[in-house]
């Protein structure tokens, strides 16, 4: 032990010291990195609560008008269809009546003519012809009925198809509106700086007018929260969030009916006070 110690001192202990120092430093470095990697894996995820509720109020008169017109048109079409069906039925009935009258007249005439000749012969002939006529009539009626049935079924299918297509269009349109709404909501939320006077439950409604390019034309407070600072902060948020470039991708008719004039509700619910 003493000998080894002395041997170390022969070289003044330099190699040993260098090894100790380098090992010490690399150990500390490894420890630091290990601790760092552990702390990164255990990091908490911050979840930010919803800051504002940017709800849309559908106040666009254009849309309302169009919807009303559509509804009226649909009603009218329905009524028209019913009336046409009724007419058809009436026509059919009339034809039937006409035919029956014709047949009776012919019968009368034949009877009168045949009465002069052999009555038996006439009777037989009359019977035969009457039978034939009746069969023919029967056939005709059945054919008419089948035709009407077929037409009705086709019409129904057509109606159903139209309704389905209309519903599908409405759904994709709704999705587009919802995604655009979410984008605007998020953009405004991110830049909204609430003043210190803001309280939970305060509510300001802003009406904004936009261009199809997503540019903001005007933002107007339609319902004040009662706190001017709060109103101003909402207005500032809208102005600094604009332009909403994503709106450029919307079809123009959807934009016109939903986003040209838009109402945003600013209502904080995540404040601590």
């Amino acid at each position: 032990m003493n000998n080894m110690f002395n041997n170390l001192v022969i070289f003044n202990g330099y190699p040993f010291s260098v090894i100790v120092a380098v090992t010490f430093h690399s150990l500390i470095l490894v420890l630091l990195i290990w601790m760092q990697s552990r702390s990164t894996t255990e990091r908490l995820e911050l979840i930010q609560p919803t800051v504002i509720k940017a709800l849309f109020i559908d106040e666009n008169p254009q849309t309302l008008n169009r919807q009303a017109a559509e509804r009226r048109a649909a009603d009218e079409a329905q009524r028209e269809l019913q009336r046409r069906q009724q007419e058809q039925q009436e026509q059919q009935e009339q034809q039937e009546r006409q035919r029956r009258q014709d047949a009776e007249q012919a019968e009368e005439f034949q009877r009168a003519a045949l009465r002069k000749r052999d009555e038996l012969e006439a009777q037989r002939q009359l019977e035969r012809s009457r039978e034939r006529e009746r069969a023919e009539l029967e056939q005709q009626r059945q054919r008419d009925l089948a035709e009407a049935e077929r037409r009705r079924v086709a019409e129904e299918a057509e109606n159903q198809r139209q309704e389905l297509a209309r519903a599908e269009g409405a759904r994709t349109e709704l999705e587009l509106i919802q995604s655009a709404t979410a984008i605007i909501q998020l953009a405004v939320q991110q830049v909204w700086n609430r003043p210190p006077s803001a309280r939970n439950g305060m509510r300001a409604i802003l009406q904004i007018r936009m261009l199809p390019t997503g540019e903001l034309l005007e933002a107007r407070i339609t319902e004040s929260s009662g706190d001017p600072a709060f109103d101003r902060s909402a207005e500032n948020a809208v102005y600094s969030a604009a332009p909403f470039i994503e709106l450029r991708n919307l079809p123009i008719n959807i934009f016109n009916s939903n986003f040209r004039i838009l109402s945003l509700i600013f209502q904080p619910e995540d404040l601590l006070n």
Partner: peptide, 10 residues
């Protein structure tokens, strides 16, 4: 640290 260890030995 090299010096610390070496001086400690000496």
């Amino acid at each position: 640290w090299v010096i610390i260890v070496q001086r400690w030995l000496v």
